[in-house]
């Protein structure tokens, strides 16, 4: 299986080439176009309860699509809903990533997707909710962001501070604490940052260059008031 990012930038697509019999899972609605050899199936990843917990705990979709090259080799084009970059990671069986709920676009069949409970402080203040997706296993993992994706590489014990709304994915060898952006409570909120995550390496943190919630509030001011 090979993948290639087309039109890198704000409106990319990912082209996945399938050998006969190969298949991937993708976020429901991610398929843009595909060869006639590709069959699209709707699947509740992780069984009914797994899908249910993902839907209600993380806000991810209940069904994933399975794209399967059942009748010969072919290709499929996938794209996320929001404008923003796509990144393809190769998981090797030991590297695991936590992914914020809208960050998953597609994954090889060897990738396991679980919803995992976070600690109370991370759940309350981290901006990702109490449950986030944990990606483990082996194979290709395609993530998408709102805006551009930036990769932060952390050496052991190296620290970096990220605004919580800009998180996309982070490896499980990192650890992070939630803290106020500035020393005072009032300044923390008036600075517009509120809470931030202090990450500590080793590992990789993927961040997005735009804040979806911030964008939502910005758009809201132009919408006509509903009754």
């Amino acid at each position: 299986m090979k993948s290639e990012i087309l039109y890198p930038g704000a409106f990319p697509m990912v082209r996945v080439e399938f050998g006969e019999g190969e298949h991937i899972k993708a976020e429901s609605g991610a398929m843009v176009a595909c060869s006639p050899t590709i069959d699209i199936e709707s699947k509740m990843e992780g069984g009914f309860l797994g899908a249910l917990s993902r839907k209600f705990l993380t806000g991810e979709k209940f069904f994933f699509q399975t794209l399967r090259a059942s009748r010969g080799a072919g290709e499929a084009l996938l794209a996320p809903t929001v404008p923003g970059e796509i990144v393809v990671l190769e998981l090797d069986g030991v590297n695991e990533y936590m992914v914020q709920k809208d960050g998953f676009l597609a994954g090889a069949d060897g990738i396991a997707i679980d919803s995992q409970m976070q600690s109370m402080s991370r759940g309350l203040l981290g901006g990702e909710g109490f449950f986030i997706l944990k990606m483990s296993g082996k194979g290709m993992l395609v993530l998408n962001s709102f805006g551009a994706i930036h990769k932060i590489e952390l050496k052991p014990s190296q620290e970096y501070i990220v605004d919580n709304s800009h998180l996309v994915a982070w490896s499980t060898t990192t650890s992070y604490n939630i803290e106020k952006a500035t020393s005072g409570w009032v300044a923390s909120f008036t600075s517009g940052e509120g809470f931030v995550c202090r990450f500590r390496g080793p590992g990789v943190v993927y961040i997005q260059s735009r804040n979806p919630r911030g964008f939502g509030s910005w758009v809201r001011q132009f919408l006509p008031a509903s009754e």
């Binding site: 030991v94 050496k155 060898t173």
Partner: peptide
């Protein structure tokens, strides 16, 4: 064999090297 750990060091990638 399948890797069971990640090794980090100055010259290693930030994701660690599977071993």
């Amino acid at each position: 064999t399948a890797p069971n750990a990640l090794c980090f060091g100055d010259g290693f990638p930030a994701t660690g090297v599977p071993c």
